[in-house]
Nucleic acid binder design. Structure first.
Lengths: 212, 212
DNA sequence: ATTATCTATAGATCTATAGATAATGC
DNA sequence: ATTATCTATAGATCTATAGATAATGC
């Protein structure tokens, strides 16, 4: 997967050419994602990342200051990819017959496609220093916020009955986490359910709250 | 928290005295849990664990063969503790007015109390070699199985309407994961909800599937 | 005599940087 | 002249074990 660079920010570098920074960091992130997925952050060495990215270990350290910086860039790239896929998908659900079901379906399919990446974030977010960890958690919150918007808009259009604000917000968290659940319990769930069956049953659970 | 030793199994040792093995491993696990919670598995050294357990590094390696063995013992201890707390709590819900609500409440309170430990397992399970990881996942599955039992029993007693088997099983997974959700999103959720509010709203979601 | 424990360290990494070299653009 | 890149390695760990010592039980 080749990641967008839009979120590459805040990490200092000695390199002057901004386009080059973007390109090299994308190389680094793409290489690191693969390695982290295979063996995790701690068991991947900076030398391996440099080699996989096709640059020397010395050059790697011109683009980042610490190994944790690489993990941060990886987490940002994953969230950027999810956020982009989601906003794009959600825009197309506006005039579906059942917009909420369709939004849930699109989201769960993104979670299915990016299962390994989602698990990676759960797994490694604690390896980040706290300021970077905070930013990653904000990204996560932004994704939940997308569902809060969907629910609020549908409620405003009378497409859904009114729920208390706190209840609606928790419903959005639930959608978000039930998508992740497919990622981190896939080892078990995929023995009993296809992703389509999973989506169907979970959608039933989520919508039942709105049906009385 | 002092952990039960019942699940200390399968890890070879040169030490002959079985009671001593149990006692020393409990010391080791108790020390390791604290350190892993503070700084994670990879940033904790075996020397630190030995020192915190009050034994020498050499002796530590008489009771385990690798650092991962310690993590495995820690995961087993956490699941043993959760399993024990839960079966005990569930036994007492049998004659409650709303047994399912009461089971959910008890479970969520266990998740609340053991938040950090639950997150630790999500975080570090990938650091285990695959045979040990499998055993930890089995433990996790056993906890979900407790809820499958609860739902099946209540259905058999006509206290709940009949659901398709696959739907019922996924409901059990959902209960399990929504408890974990309080653990791994507490940083955000606890700003908006007390644990009691959380339990109340989530119980509403879970039960609504049964109310039509 | 046997079992449990400790001290000291081998051996193997790994991150990060210093200093040398190549490429680029005026 | 400046910027980008590479090679070689310092310096700092950390896991795991070998070999010596202390404690235990017959």
């Amino acid at each position: 997967m080749a990641f967008e660079s839009s979120k590459i920010r805040d990490i200092p570098t000695q390199i002057k050419d901004k386009k080059l920074v973007t390109r090299r960091r994308r190389q680094i992130v793409d290489a690191a994602v693969e390695l982290f997925l295979q063996k995790g952050f701690h068991k991947t060495t900076t030398r391996q990342i440099a080699r996989a990215a096709g640059i020397s270990i010395g050059l790697l350290y011109e683009y980042i200051a610490t190994k944790e910086d690489i993990l941060f860039l990886v987490c940002e790239a994953i969230h950027a990819e999810m956020h982009a896929a989601l906003t794009q998908a959600l825009n197309r659900t506006v005039d579906a017959a059942h917009p909420l079901s369709e939004a849930i379906r699109k989201y769960f399919l993104v979670c299915h496609r990016m299962s390994d990446h989602i698990v990676l974030i759960y797994q490694e977010i604690h390896s980040l220093p706290s300021n970077q960890r905070k930013k990653v958690l904000e990204n996560e919150e932004n994704i939940t916020a997308l569902f809060i918007d969907v629910l609020e808009n549908l409620t405003a259009q009378n497409a859904l009955p009114v729920l208390e604000e706190n209840v609606l917000k928790l419903a959005a968290h639930n959608i978000s986490v039930l998508g992740h659940m497919w990622a981190f319990r896939r080892w078990r769930l995929s023995a009993s359910y296809t992703i389509d069956e999973y989506i169907e049953i979970q959608t039933g659970f989520i919508l039942s709250r709105y049906k009385h």
